[in-house]
C-alpha cells in the first residue's frame, strides 16, 4: 500500500516533533522528549554520584561545601536541607518491617506518591538512573540489530504482570525478614552506589541485567522491577498522558513498535478509538509521540478516555 506521507520518513523514523505545532527542518528531527528525559535522568544521576562520592565533600565535611543543598541517593534524598523525598516502595517496606510510621518517611513519600498519582509512572523514564542506562543499552542493540525490535517485542509482553507479584513478594519478604528487602537489594540503588564509590563488583548485577536485555528488551523495567510495579499501580489515573487526536491513522505501527514498555498503542488505543493512553505501565516517555507518522499522538494533560467512535 502506498502512503503518501511516508515521503517524509527519514532513516530511523525521526520525523515527528513532539510539540503541538508541526515544526520544520532540524527542529523536526530532534527527539525533544527523549533528550529532555535523558538530560533530566542523567543530571539527577550525576548529582547523586557527585554528592555521594569524594568529589562532593571536602576533608572538613560535607555540610560546609557547595553541594550542601542536596544529600541522598535514589531511595531517599533531602533537597535544600528541608525537603525530604522518599521512594514510596522503600517507605512501605520500612512501615511493614519496623511496624512503625516514621514521620519524615510519610512526608517524603507523600511527594513521590502525589507525583505518581498526578503525572503517572514518570519516575521510570524521567528520573530512574537504571532506566536511563537500560534505555541506552536498548538503543545500542536496536541499532546493531535492525530487526530486533520487531522480533522481540512480544516476548516480554506476557511477563509484564510479573512485577506486581514481585512487588507483593517484596512486601511479604520485608515484613517477615524485618528489613526493607527491595531497598537493600535494589539494582537502582546498587548502581548509584557502585558508580559513586567506584566499587565495581556491585556493577555485576547491572551488567547481568543489561546482557539479559539484549534478548528481552527492557525486561527489568517492564516485568521485574517492583518499584515500577508500584508506580504503575499508582500512575493509572495520572492526567499527564499521551493523547490521540486527529483522524490521520496510518496503521504504521511505529508507536507499538517503539514503546519501551511494550504497550500496543496502535491496536489497544488508537484503533480502539480511545482519546488517551491510560495504561498504568506507560512511563510518559514520549517515544510514541516522536515516531508517530501521522502526528496524532501527543503528550499532554488529559483525564478522559472517550472519543466519538470513528468509522474504520
Amino acid at each position: 500500500m502506498e502512503l503518501p506521507i511516508l515521503r517524509s520518513e527519514r532513516g530511523d523514523g525521526q520525523t515527528a516533533s513532539s510539540s503541538g505545532h508541526v515544526a520544520t527542518g532540524w527542529m523536526r528531527r530532534v527527539r525533544w522528549w527523549t533528550w529532555s528525559r535523558r538530560a533530566t535522568a542523567g543530571s539527577l544521576l550525576l548529582l547523586m554520584v557527585i554528592a555521594n562520592s569524594s568529589i562532593g565533600h571536602s576533608s572538613i565535611g560535607h555540610s560546609s561545601t557547595w553541594l550542601s543543598w542536596f544529600t541522598g541517593s535514589i531511595t531517599a534524598a533531602t533537597w535544600f536541607g528541608c525537603l525530604p523525598i522518599v521512594d514510596p516502595l522503600a517507605a512501605l517496606e520500612v512501615v511493614l518491617a519496623s511496624h512503625s510510621v516514621p514521620a519524615w518517611t510519610l512526608v517524603g513519600s507523600m511527594f513521590t506518591v502525589a507525583l505518581a498519582l498526578g503525572l503517572g509512572r514518570v519516575f521510570c523514564s524521567w528520573a530512574c538512573p537504571l532506566g536511563l542506562v537500560l534505555e541506552l543499552n536498548d538503543g545500542l542493540w536496536n541499532k546493531a540489530w535492525r530487526r530486533r525490535k520487531r522480533q522481540l517485542h512480544r516476548v516480554g509482553r506476557s511477563l509484564q504482570p510479573l512485577k506486581y507479584w514481585i512487588l507483593g513478594a517484596c512486601l511479604i519478604a520485608s515484613s517477615i525478614a524485618e528489613i526493607p528487602v527491595f531497598a537493600a537489594i535494589s539494582p537502582i540503588s546498587l548502581m548509584v552506589q557502585a558508580i559513586s564509590r567506584m566499587s565495581l563488583h556491585l556493577l555485576v548485577v547491572i551488567v547481568v541485567i543489561a546482557l539479559i536485555e539484549i534478548f528481552f528488551p527492557r525486561l527489568f523495567c517492564r516485568a521485574l522491577c517492583p518499584l515500577g510495579g508500584l508506580y504503575s499501580l499508582l500512575g493509572r489515573w495520572g492526567v499527564f498522558r499521551v493523547r490521540a487526536s486527529g483522524e490521520d491513522r496510518l496503521r504504521c505501527q511505529r508507536c507499538s513498535l517503539d514503546c519501551p514498555m511494550g504497550i500496543d498503542v496502535m491496536h489497544d488505543y488508537v484503533l480502539a478509538g480511545k482519546s488517551s493512553i491510560d495504561d498504568g505501565q506507560c512511563t510518559r516517555c514520549g517515544a510514541c509521540t516522536e515516531v508517530c507518522l501521522g502526528h496524532i499522538l501527543r503528550l499532554g494533560i488529559s483525564s478522559g478516555n472517550t472519543r466519538s467512535a470513528v468509522s474504520e
Binding site: 565535611g61 544529600t71 531511595t75 522503600a90 512503625s100 524485618e178
Partner: peptide, 15 residues
Amino acid sequence: ASKCIRCQQCVVVCP
C-alpha cells in the same frame, strides 16, 4: 536494620 534504606545521607553529612 528494619528502617535503614541505604540512602547514604548520614554518610554524606557526617562532619
